[in-house]
Design a protein around this nucleic acid. Structure first.
Lengths: 264, 264
DNA sequence: TTGGATTTGTACGTATGTATA
DNA sequence: GTATACATACGTACAAATCCA
């Protein structure tokens, strides 16, 4: 089974610069603080189920105001890394006993190559067309029939073993000049780094279904094997839908994980 | 197929009081504001893809400071209801074209009865034991062998049709005096309203699997049918794990949906 | 039961920065 | 360049939750 090394929080700091030592540095102070605290949790400075220093102390130590510390902690709490108890303090969350190295977070705006490491992911292009969108795709991506979309089917291969069939539609007008070279690497990388577009939110549906011809051919699924399917629409921060896709996984190779938080 | 009527945001206001007119009223101003804006989006006062009044105007109109409005909008943005563009304004998110009335949000801390309506959900108790936890359950719920757990298997029946098999473990010390009467209704209701406990966060795994004997017997699944399984641990706001459970669904009756946001 | 100490949460004001048209 | 609107950051004051003596 596929082994993943996931740092949920690393993805928080994609809007960051490099300082003179080549280290990741967020532009905003609260992200800096969040990263420092996150690192201290990871390196064991702050232990699971133990309290962090209070906000005032952290503020003093790190040279920011208490509210900036609070904003950082709020974010880390929403990600499930810490929990806060009014009147008591802020604590490091306990380890997650059902989490394994094979878990694959569903909340990923960064793409598979970013998650698994660029050298581990290869892509076989099964289909790469430009076409006028049918009625469904028009609806999903807010397009007119005259506005073309890419129709892409890729087999994502991890450690030389076929893992996912991804079927992706994207508006040409939002992602110009897509080519096979990019498809072999990472579309998300291209969208973020080259086009400077930023994902805002996504709606995802996860379901089980039966293996179809593609699954059997490309993922070596048996006809009687269940499949795990993720269907999603992804929007940019300006509200435009940029992607409609379905990803099909073998039931014995992948599951999707979610960290939820009961806070506003 | 099961028809759900979901209001994602309603669950935001569970920490609320009733005012003299019996209306839901949050204690905190920013929750009040969020509810007002949420309602205006639902009733069409603010239209999809259209800008809201700017924060300053809303603050003035609603008699709070701009930062309180911002805090409300930040929360609504994280839930996917609005998106903000620095320098431009705050906009109502577009409708979600792949969302159907059958979707079932995975991010539910409120329980099935709350989601579907109390009159629509019945529960058949297949198993209700108290026992000493095995090694796995000890690990999942941070318990010693000497600390008993409930071992509960319920068939959840919606509109007289069997929908889910839920297998739940809960520590007796955190949920005292559980009885069959409560199991027939809602455990979550009992935990929230009677015991005054509050859920903090959850870790969920969603996978596809093959139908087992239980699925075939109670959900009328065929042997060759895929099943959709949700496995989760739920923690209280004080960091204690309170629930380990697995829920199995027929592949043709349910999918799990997620709204994700790319913000800190 | 009460009161004090500690810690987090809410709310507002203000100033400045940043993104966009 | 200018105007607009949202974001960050700090300060301050007070409220609410928790624990302990």
């Amino acid at each position: 089974m596929l082994e993943l090394i996931v740092n949920y929080v690393a993805s928080l700091f994609i809007n960051s610069n490099l300082n003179k030592d080549g280290e990741i540095m967020a532009k905003e102070k609260y992200l800096e603080i969040a990263k420092i605290i996150n690192d201290r949790i990871n390196d064991g400075t702050y232990q699971a189920r133990q309290p962090l220093p209070d906000q005032e102390s952290l503020a003093k130590e790190l040279g920011v105001s208490r509210l900036t510390v609070k904003k950082a902690l709020d974010g880390l709490e929403r990600k499930g890394l810490v929990y806060k108890q009014s009147g008591l303090g802020t604590y490091v969350s306990g380890t997650i006993p059902i989490q394994t190295r094979y878990d694959s977070p569903a909340n990923m705006f960064t793409g598979l190559r970013n998650l698994l490491g660029r050298d581990n992911v290869k892509s076989q292009i099964i289909k790469f067309n430009v076409e006028f969108p049918n009625e469904n795709i028009q609806k999903y991506l807010c397009l007119k029939h005259s506005e073309p979309v890419y129709n892409i089917v890729r087999l994502r291969i991890v450690d030389d073993s076929p893992l996912i069939i991804e079927h992706t539609y994207m508006p040409v007008k939002l992602v110009p000049n897509l080519d096979e070279n990019i498809l072999h690497k990472s579309i998300y990388q291209y969208i973020h780094k080259e086009l400077k577009l930023k994902f805002g939110h996504a709606y995802r549906k996860i379901r089980a279904c039966k293996a179809d011809q593609y699954d059997q051919k490309y993922l070596n699924a048996k006809k009687s094997d269940p499949m795990l399917e993720l269907e999603q629409i992804v929007w940019l921060t300006n509200g435009d839908p940029i992607e409609y896709s379905t990803s099909r996984n073998r039931y014995d190779q992948r599951d999707y994980t979610i960290v939820e938080n009961n806070r506003f």
